[in-house]
Design a protein around this nucleic acid. Structure first.
Length: 935
RNA sequence: GCCCAGGUGGUGGAACUGGUAGACACGCAGGACUUAAAAUCCUGUGCCCGUCAAAGGCGUGCGGGUUCGAUUCCCGCCCUGGGUACCA
């Protein structure tokens, strides 16, 4: 029979499901291997052809690892809480759970059609109570923990209470809020319960605090920093403003250093690690105190004795010629003298008027004003002015900067603009036109570090500052604690109630705290989150539940553990399962999660390790980013009439320059190889029913552009259509054939015929001209074995370095060779079936059983063993080049040594014609590679 | 601005440690089969100059360098994509 992909694929998908072929065991003598895909948010649009790219790669890898004797965990699930379902609910009143359920059904149907080897018995959904029970449970553990810097790990809050009871707050080295109290053990014991709780909240790893948040009015919620791009929400692109709110936060900053260090031990793409490093933003420097000389004596009492700055270039302290403070800094008013007040207020008003976005974009305009106050340089004793300036951010460091115009370009521009002194401090510094931030050269104008070099000077300055109590070395991080609350409905309820203004956890046995029903999915009239609409939803009569829900990243920050033991009702996963599967060996997903999901997951993983629930410091050993598949839009060109109005005539791309035309997107599904199907085009839209065409060479050629895949551009290609036409095996191989996995590329089906033809050709190896199954038991020839072992080796090498596209080419070469050899030898073809099965599992399962093997056993067969003997050659056709340019080829036995080959080359008169009459200077022979004649 | 990744035929791409640039596939051209079309098969296909062939010239973004030999290594520049940005 000819290759009937539809029947074959349906048959084997049903077989795998019925027999649970890919169910992974938590207990096996085989080595474990965990292959994970970033689980999808089930959107209403279903899968397009770009989504499965990573899933296909991970599936090939999983199937390959099974053949190599590994116990493979390869699960799939849904990140099913999220905004789109809720926005839809607001519009239609449909409960998001129903929408989500429908969307999941579509996803599942589409995924099943592609023939993935997922263990569906482990499916998770972040929105199901059986799952979010454990998300809430982890939240509770975070609430009950603090970070002990001495132990460099999270510990139980009870340990902290014990410390307070014995020694008070002395000798506590914790990551905490800035406003923690100092108290003795007795003072602690004397505090009321509520006072103690309020104090402990400053230490908990998840805590409630009034903080400035990204408020998105259109979405009615706060957003995390990574959900905001250029002042707009990542989802929807709505404006975001800064607003003070009482919010749950996660003390991720406690883990900043470990998150940074851990990057060195994981095999992730460098750009992605770099993004995380930048996000964490470690900078090593020093804190320096400048004594304050208030200009306004009346307000001196409101001011501290010192202004403190953070600097990464403490060595430049003798170049300080002014001090700058952020316009929104709380001390600005007290620093300002009456005669400068007008200028300062004007400057602040100016800053306030500018939106966050303008302030970021506009770095050219220099604005600032003198406050009238001064500070004293602690080392030089020099008195310098205190200014406010736009370029200083209140949220970073201390909100003040020491101005060193010779070494920092922003300081330089500021000093030039306001005519402040610019003092060179390094001998080789060139500061005529701009700042020179060099660390080379020797210091000048710098008192006791004159003549020193960078390293020595930095150490000396810090030592001096420490000795006089005016500063110390300090490491700063850019990363902020992560806001952990959304004023939305469709998310995990926070397992907290409030009593007398203080948050309390519900009891563990009360988990899960089920998301209540509401009449509408909108905030209340008084601006409370939708959960406030839930009638009678209260912990107790005098104890209201928290009304915000958890952010989208909560459920995805630990899901890979749930797959290990998905049905467990008493723990998030059993310790046995966690100890067996340990961590994810291979994680495939998009780089858009670099600073969100991938950072939060590492954070929660480290926390779970600290509290002894998991064993590994890092959750994802190896990570690969698959590239994005872009849309490839096609255009038709409508001819405009003299008045510029569109006519009903369309001109082919090559002729459009002769007319006045408008380009219109045309559905890519009625275009093939950029040739428009004009019949389908007329049917596509009613107004095109009478369309006429100006053709070139009898065809209508469409224009092309690469854009994002989207409905409005009519360039969405759905995997269902491809599968209908060519089958899942072709889709799988074609998506790999398209190019390297990590590379982004536009989708086009121009080459898909070639892959389909290949599978048909493969099928034909097993069949005679009448399409009857026909294989021979004869011994394979040397040439056949050579082809086979070439591909055994090649695929093995390719898969292990994730070069799936090159394997597909090699399969084509192997099948072309075997076809030329008319090979139908059972032993060769059976091995071919095993090697190809990770890529094209359906056709291989069919051929495997036709060869007489037990149905379903292919998935756990053994990958053929490579034997290098079959590739040994005794002759090599050497390329002969003259001065590096290849001219011809000559065969030599590989047994000949270099001298013998060289002698034969020199004796060969046929080569004269390539030498242009010149004498041979030298002959270079690289054995088995090349011969180069130098003239 | 800074940090990454990348620029190879008409197209997608290959060349793994410096050793035959363009594998494989698409497309295109010609041919076979067919009443015809589809499907299938065969041949050719980087560009320029040759009637075929031989031979030659030019070719991996651009300009240099190292080397017997460079898509690969080094220096400078241009372009595209991604990230990030008054972070002191």
């Amino acid at each position: 029979m000819d290759y009937q992909f539809k029947d074959i694929e349906k048959k084997w998908q049903a077989f795998w499901a019925a027999n649970q072929t890919f169910k992974a065991d938590n207990n096996s003598a085989k080595p474990k291997y965990y292959v994970l895909d970033m689980f999808p948010y089930p959107s209403g649009a279903g899968l397009h052809v770009g989504h499965p790219l990573g899933y296909i790669a991970s599936d090939i890898f999983s199937r390959y690892k099974r053949l190599k004797g590994f116990n493979v965990l390869h699960p799939m699930g849904y990140d099913s809480f999220g905004l789109p379902a809720e926005q839809y609910a607001i519009q239609t009143g449909q409960h998001p759970a129903i929408t989500t359920e429908d969307n999941i059904a579509t996803y599942r149907r589409q995924l099943d059609q592609i023939g993935f080897s997922f263990d569906w018995s482990r499916e998770v959904r972040t929105s199901s109570p059986g799952y979010y029970k454990w998300t809430q449970w982890i939240f509770m553990q975070l609430f009950n923990s603090w970070y002990n810097k001495d132990a460099d790990k999270a510990e139980s809050i009870d340990e902290l209470v014990k410390k307070f009871e014995t020694n008070g707050s002395a000798n506590i080295s914790a990551v905490s809020d800035d406003d923690t109290l100092n108290f003795t053990a007795d003072e602690w014991k004397a505090m009321s319960h509520d006072e103690q709780q309020a104090e402990l909240l400053k230490y908990r790893l998840t805590y409630l605090r009034e903080s400035t948040v990204n408020w998105c009015a259109a979405l009615g919620t706060v957003l995390a920093n990574d959900e905001v791009k250029d002042g707009f929400s990542e989802r929807g692109g709505y404006p975001v403003e800064q607003k003070k709110m009482m919010q749950w936060s996660m003390r991720i900053t406690a883990y900043a250093e470990r998150l940074l260090q851990g990057l060195d031990n994981i095999d992730w793409p460098d750009p992605l690690k770099e993004m995380q490093r930048n996000w964490i933003g470690k900078s090593i420097g020093a804190m320096v105190k400048f004594k304050l000389e208030p200009g306004n004596k009346d307000l001196a009492a409101e001011l501290p004795a010192y202004l403190e700055v953070f600097t990464t270039r403490v060595d430049t302290i003798f170049g300080v010629s002014y001090m700058v403070i952020a316009p929104e800094h709380e001390l600005v008013q007290a620093l300002t003298t009456p005669e400068h007040k007008a200028a300062i207020d004007a400057c602040i008003a100016q800053t306030k008027k500018k939106s966050e976005l303008d302030r970021m974009a506009d770095t050219k305009t220099i604005s600032g004003a003198f406050t009238g106050s001064h500070v004293i340089n602690p080392l030089s004793g020099e008195k310098v002015q205190v200014w406010i300036a736009d370029y200083v951010l209140a949220g970073y460091g201390t909100g003040c900067v020491m101005g060193v115009p010779s070494g920092d370009q922003r300081d330089y521009l500021f000093a030039k603009h306001f005519d402040l002194p610019i003092v060179p401090i390094i001998d080789i510094q060139n500061i005529e036109t701009e700042a020179d931030p060099t660390k080379e050269g020797k210091y000048i104008n710098s008192d006791f570090i004159n003549g020193m070099e960078y390293k020595e000077a930095t150490t000396a300055v810090i030592a001096k500052l420490e000795s006089i109590g005016m500063g110390s070395g300090k490491t700063n991080y850019r990363m902020r604690d992560a806001i952990f609350g959304r004023q939305r409905y469709w998310g995990e309820p926070v397992p907290v109630y409030f009593k007398d203004g203080l948050p309390h956890l519900i009891k563990e046995e009360e988990l899960p705290l089920i998301l209540p029903e509401v009449d509408k999915y909108l905030p209340t009239e008084t601006g409370e989150p939708p959960l406030a609409r839930a009638e009678g939803w209260k912990y107790a009569e005098d104890a209201a539940y928290e009304l915000s829900t958890m952010p989208g990243w909560a459920g995805s920050s630990w899901y890979w553990y749930r797959y290990m033991d998905a049905q467990n009702g008493s723990e998030f996963a059993s310790r046995e399962a966690i100890d067996y599967w340990k961590d994810v060996d291979l994680y495939i997903g998009g780089s858009e999660h670099a600073t969100g999901h991938l950072l939060y997951s590492r954070f929660w993983n480290k926390f779970l390790k600290d509290i002894g629930k998991v064993g590994e410091e890092e959750p994802f050993k190896k990570l690969i980013n698959q590239g994005m598949i872009q849309g490839r839009s096609n255009f038709v060109y409508r001819v405009n009439d003299a008045d510029g109005r569109g006519t009903n005539t369309f001109v082919s791309n090559g002729l459009k320059s002769q007319y006045n035309t408008s380009a219109l997107h045309v559905d890519v599904n009625i275009v093939e190889n950029d040739i428009l199907d004009t019949v389908k085009f007329k049917k596509w839209r009613d107004d095109f029913a009478n369309a006429e065409f100006i053709l070139e060479n009898g065809k209508y050629v469409c224009g092309v552009e690469v854009e994002k895949m989207s409905k409005s551009k009519f360039n969405v290609v759905n995997p269902d259509d491809i599968i209908e036409r060519y089958g899942a095996d072709t889709l799988r191989m074609y998506e790999m054939f398209l190019g390297p996995l990590e590379q982004s590329k536009p989708w086009n089906t121009n080459g898909i015929e070639g892959v389909f033809k290949f599978l048909r050709k493969f099928w034909r190896l097993f069949h005679n001209d009448a399409w009857e199954f026909n294989v021979s038991d004869a011994e394979p020839s040397k040439a056949e074995l050579k082809s086979l072992h070439k591909i055994i080796l090649k695929v093995q090498e390719d898969v292990e370095r994730f070069s799936f596209n090159t394997s597909v080419s090699s399969f084509m070469i192997a099948v072309n060779e075997l076809t030329d050899l008319k090979c139908n030898k059972r032993s060769v073809l059976q091995d071919m079936v095993v090697i190809l099965s990770p890529y094209a599992p359906h056709i291989c399962e069919e051929l495997w059983t036709l060869l007489g093997n037990e149905a379903g056993s292919l998935s756990y067969a053994a990958y053929p063993k490579f034997n290098p003997e079959y590739l040994v050659e005794n002759e090599f056709s050497y390329p002969i080049s003259v001065n590096g340019k290849t001219k011809t080829n000559i065969n030599f036995a590989l047994s000949l040594d270099v001298k013998e080959v060289e002698a034969q080359i020199l004796a060969n008169t046929d080569l004269q014609k390539y030498l242009d009459g010149k004498a041979i200077k030298k002959v270079i022979v690289v054995k088995g590679r090349i011969i180069n004649i130098v003239v």
